[in-house]
Lab assay of single mutants.
Amino acid sequence: MAAAAAAGAGPEMVRGQVFDVGPRYTNLSYIGEGAYGMVCSAYDNVNKVRVAIKKISPFEHQTYCQRTLREIKILLRFRHENIIGINDIIRAPTIEQMKDVYIVQDLMETDLYKLLKTQHLSNDHICYFLYQILRGLKYIHSANVLHRDLKPSNLLLNTTCDLKICDFGLARVADPDHDHTGFLTEYVATRWYRAPEIMLNSKGYTKSIDIWSVGCILAEMLSNRPIFPGKHYLDQLNHILGILGSPSQEDLNCIINLKARNYLLSLPHKNKVPWNRLFPNADSKALDLLDKMLTFNPHKRIEVEQALAHPYLEQYYDPSDEPIAEAPFKFDMELDDLPKEKLKELIFEETARFQPGYRS
């Protein structure tokens, strides 16, 4: 834990890192770190609560700039109880001085990944967590956004079992017609939660990839272990087919990539493993919904509104309290091709509203 900075004593240090967030945020305490930044909790002297502050230093890398800009653009436009918001952003007053960006968010005690390492969940908890994931996802999908990296560590939890989806750095506007060349190379989302079509096709992607990830998360809540822990690309596919069985001819016809289709045709026939054999203690309604989410063919996979209306979630289902976005989200430009200098300018502009004396 960093010592509390005395008023006016300059930035606090946390594990050798400068955290320049005073005077409003003090009493910093280390939480963890990701690929390009550290997260601390801090005391907000204005709202009198502890908050989470993520320090991001992305400006050396085009990919990190892209992810940072995506996350900020999306989260500043989203407003939903099951999606983490941005409360404040701290950065230098000029673009030349801006080396880091500090993002202030609600402090959540833990995440689903940490929880599943230590606790076996009751059916009631599984049901409530799944409902909140789908409630947040309904809003995301209504904005025409794909999260693309749903996994237990991106689901934040607090002691009252509130759940918030975080990390929109890989999110995209849904565009089933656009052929994202190089899709697989830039697709760094965790393999275990990846839909089979991501490994088999490169053309376009749809909201059904997020539903697949939610199915993987439900299976993990039922058993405290990942359902498809593939060691590499082909191993991942083999794990999936080992449980779902061989795809039907109709399902194979959806695979545009001939090499991928021929690979699947070359494999020995596998039978589907019954879900109640894998999860003998699970609620039968939970397994019915799991089956509809972990469907090989993305066109037959359940959609988020149908999933919310499934009998497993009937005690929570309330369409009048499951809000959607006001308007579909649009990125003005494809960020993939922009140089990091341009992305830095866009991050600077996007964060201006939090600067003292800002006038829109």
Rank of each mutant, 00 (worst) to 15 (best):
A3Y: 12
A7Q: 03
G10C: 07
G16Y: 10
V21D: 08
Y25L: 06
T26S: 00
T26Q: 08
I31S: 12
G32A: 09
G34Q: 12
C40L: 11
S41E: 13
A42K: 12
A42I: 07
K48N: 00
A52Y: 07
A52V: 02
K55D: 07
P58Y: 15
P58G: 15
H61G: 08
Q66S: 05
Q66I: 15
Q66D: 04
E71Q: 06
E71T: 12
I72D: 05
K73F: 05
I74D: 09
L76P: 09
R77P: 11
R79I: 00
R79C: 09
H80T: 13
N82A: 10
N82P: 06
I83A: 15
I83G: 14
N87D: 12
D88L: 15
I89E: 09
I89C: 14
I90C: 15
I90V: 11
I90W: 15
A92E: 15
E96Q: 14
E96W: 14
Q97T: 12
Q97M: 13
D100N: 02
Q105H: 01
Q105I: 13
D106T: 14
D106I: 15
T110I: 06
K117C: 07
T118H: 11
Q119I: 13
Q119V: 09
H120F: 12
L121K: 06
L121F: 08
C127K: 08
L130E: 03
L134W: 03
R135I: 14
L137C: 12
K138M: 10
Y139E: 09
Y139F: 01
H141E: 10
N144Y: 00
S153V: 04
T160L: 10
T160P: 06
L163T: 10
I165C: 10
F168Y: 02
L170A: 05
R172A: 02
P176H: 05
P176L: 03
G182H: 04
F183W: 11
F183I: 00
F183D: 06
L184P: 02
V188M: 03
Y193H: 01
Y193N: 00
R194L: 02
M199W: 06
Y205Q: 03
K207V: 05
K207A: 07
K207M: 00
I209L: 02
D210H: 06
V214D: 03
G215T: 02
I217M: 09
M221R: 02
L222V: 09
L222W: 12
S223C: 03
N224Q: 05
F228P: 09
G230T: 14
H232M: 08
D235M: 05
N238D: 15
H239F: 07
L244I: 13
G245P: 02
G245I: 07
Q249S: 14
D251W: 05
D251K: 04
C254G: 11
N257C: 08
K259N: 01
Y263V: 07
L264C: 11
L265F: 10
S266M: 12
P268C: 09
P268S: 01
K270Q: 11
K270F: 11
P274A: 07
W275F: 12
W275Q: 05
W275P: 03
W275H: 07
F279P: 09
F279D: 09
N281P: 15
D288L: 06
N297Q: 05
P298I: 13
H299M: 08
A307R: 05
P311M: 14
E314P: 15
Y316P: 15
I324G: 13
A325K: 15
A325W: 12
E326R: 10
P328S: 05
K330N: 04
D332R: 08
M333H: 07
M333V: 10
M333E: 12
E334P: 11
D336E: 01
E341T: 13
K344Y: 09
I347E: 01
F348P: 07
A352W: 13
Y358I: 02
R359W: 00
R359Y: 14
